[in-house]
Write a protein that binds this DNA or RNA. Structure first.
Length: 594
RNA sequence: GGGCCCGUAGCUUAACUGAAUAGAGCAUCUGACUACGGAUCAGAAGGUUGGGGGUUUGAAUCCCUCCGGGCCCA
């Protein structure tokens, strides 16, 4: 790794010149206006060298140039030492990537981790927010896999509670036995329809009661349809066979619908957890905590945890009637998962940032209960997706449905593909598949390129873009390279490692691309450390952009020098495969033609 | 009442965790070969990084304060 070597050389130089050691070597990419690729910021070193920043920079530059063997030239601007790495070194770096098909893929380390994402309710279909959630979780899982982890992808499905009983109640009253088959609707959509139906009826009944002088709060409880839903929830808890049957039938419809959506999204799971089987967990753990003295009981019998020493407040874990709260379940589920997968060192929870407090508390509690792995639990907190009209609200019907959005993206992609007419020899089926790849690529890239922590804006009109900083731009670059490689094969040009050795100098555009290719592994590590697919998205865009610049500046096949020609083909190959790998980390596929 | 997050070009965003003239894309304007794919490339214009103060050789980044937006806990 070039950066590592450079750092070591710089440390040696400082030791030799000033008889001092530097901990932090501040290396950064050189600004475009100066010659060089790596820049050493010399201000901090000037402090220990007891000389001015410029002189310090010059001395280090001189030393490196004569002693290191990798620095060809240097220039000093103010306190910045710009280093020009010799082309031989760049070519060597390229060669090591080229000759290693496993570049950027860490062999299995034996480490294991769990990533949770999606985690929907079963009363309504998936929406735009779930898309961001799923793509993020899936991508982080992919990044960790590439880092050598064995990753277990899970979700917890909120399949019980009043919300699904509302859909059940409405279906019972107005459904007339309607099923996905009889209606031709996707199961999750059908159940969602009855959830809306419930809400509409409930509102009407509340209004009626209010007109009779009942208070709003009372009216909401007394509305007959609400009473029915509550009654069904009680029946469910008593395990009434008829209620359980309807419950599992309707949930079954939803799962079939979700399955179709996940499949199209290209995400999957290794294990599913259901709240109906986990909601009673955790109570024993909490009681154990009371015995151990990490929790305490109040006079009314409720159990609390005191987090004031951690800068938070007191939090209830069991109500006075002994019933659980959400936190209790989450404690139980976390422990269950570590029993199911004893080798995992931690869990990543992909959940919106409104739950930040909840997870902070959860991890603290798990730590107090003595679980070491609590330290390795991470809340992958992401911001809401806003619409130009503001927040998505199901009650106001402003929710962007996941299936609809994917349809729309693919449709735009297909229209564009046909208009450009570059793939005339393709069958309809092939065009469909390609459009799916492009449409979903655009959507995933759009949702992943922004820092997960940030709240993001989704404008349905402007977000469907296929030019510029988008997934299709990168897919296009890949397809274009593939076209070059086909031509090279047809011309019988076959690059090999030996021919690379005959290349002595590089064009600036080539150096830039190699610089980017060389960054892949460190960007991958950074993305893992930060749990941020956005870092990969930014990286792969930069790489594609650099390659396109090279492509425009240098006509590859005009080259008469055979070694150079072969080098450029090899170079294009490596770029394509790096693009392919990086995009795969985002869950995006790249085409051969488009 | 207590706590957390955010504010960067008209819009969407980046900045390697304190470094050079704050990078991109969209939109606007100008240009690109009979050549390997124009979903591309080159260029112009667009910024008091919400306001003010402080620390520092150096601040979008750290501290204080005010303004504006979002979220959580009781």
């Amino acid at each position: 790794n070039l950066d590592f070597i450079l750092r070591t050389e710089i440390q040696k130089a400082v030791a030799a010149l000033f008889n001092q050691s530097v901990e932090q070597v501040q290396l950064q990419p050189t600004n475009a206006e100066f010659e060089g690729s790596h820049t050493l910021v010399c201000f901090p070193i000037a402090k220990i060298s007891k000389k001015g920043p410029e002189e310090t920079a010059r001395l280090i530059g001189d030393y490196l140039q004569t002693n290191s063997g990798i620095v060809r030239r240097f220039n000093v601007v103010k306190g910045f030492l710009n280093l020009v790495i010799s082309d031989e070194v760049w070519i060597q770096i390229f060669e090591s990537v080229y000759s290693n098909p496993w570049h950027g893929i860490t062999p299995q380390t034996g480490r294991e981790i769990m990533v949770e994402y999606s985690s929907p309710n079963t009363n309504k279909p998936l929406h735009l927010g779930h898309l961001r959630n799923n793509f993020l979780g899936y991508s982080v899982a992919g990044i960790y896999t590439a880092l050598g982890y064995s990753v277990h992808k899970v979700q917890i499905i909120n399949d019980r509670g009043i919300h699904i009983c509302k859909s059940m109640a409405a279906w019972k009253l107005f459904g007339n036995g309607e099923t996905p088959e009889s209606s031709g609707m996707k199961g999750d959509k059908l159940v969602g329809k009855y959830y809306v139906e419930f809400d509409r009826n409930h509102k009407a009944q509340v209004k009626e009661l209010e007109e009779k002088g009942v208070s709003k709060d009372e009216a909401e409880k007394q509305a007959p349809i609400m009473k029915l839903a509550v009654q069904m929830l009680q029946q469910w808890e008593k395990k009434d066979p008829e209620t359980l049957k309807l419950w599992s039938t309707m949930n079954g419809w939803v799962y079939a619908g979700f399955e179709a959506t996940y499949k199209r999204m290209g995400v999957d799971f290794d294990k599913l957890y259901y709240e109906s089987t986990t909601y009673l967990l955790g109570k024993e753990e909490v009681l154990r905590g009371v015995k151990q003295g990490v929790f305490f009981k109040k006079e009314d019998g409720s159990v609390w945890v005191d987090l004031t020493v951690d800068g938070l407040d007191q939090k209830v874990l069991l109500r006075s009637d002994g019933t659980s709260v959400y936190m209790t379940q989450d404690i139980g589920t976390a422990i269950l998962r570590f029993r199911d997968f004893p080798k995992i060192e931690g869990q990543v929870y992909t959940v919106g940032n409104e739950q930040e407090y909840h997870f902070k508390v959860l991890f603290l509690i798990l730590g107090k209960l003595g679980y070491e792995w609590a330290k390795k639990c991470y809340h992958l907190s992401y911001g809401m997706v806003d619409l130009p009209t503001g927040k998505m609200k199901s009650r106001e019907g402003t929710v962007v449905d996941a299936d609809d959005l994917m349809d729309e993206m693919v449709e735009v992609a297909e229209q564009q593909t046909r208009e450009l007419g570059k793939i005339e020899d393709s069958t309809d089926q092939e065009i469909k598949e390609l459009s799916e790849m492009i449409g979903l690529g655009a959507l995933k890239f759009f949702l992943l390129k922004v820092d997960p922590k940030k709240r993001m804006m989704f404008d349905p009109n402007e977000s469907i873009q296929l030019q510029g900083y988008t997934g299709p731009f990168i897919q296009y670059t890949h397809a274009r390279i593939k076209s070059i490689l086909r031509k090279a094969a047809a011309l019988n040009i076959h690059p090999d490692v030996a021919s690379l050795k005959n290349v002595k100098t590089l064009e600036p555009a080539e150096r830039e691309v190699i610089f980017k290719i060389n960054q892949y592994t460190s960007k991958l590590q950074e993305a893992g450390r930060e749990y941020s697919p956005a870092i990969i998205a930014n990286y792969v865009y930069d790489l594609a952009k650099e390659y396109n610049q090279f492509y425009q500046a240098i006509p590859i096949f005009n080259e008469s020098d055979q070694a150079k020609l072969k080098f450029r083909i090899a170079f294009s190959q490596v770029t394509a495969s790096t693009i392919q790998k990086a995009m795969r980390l985002l869950g995006i596929f790249v085409p051969e033609k488009m």
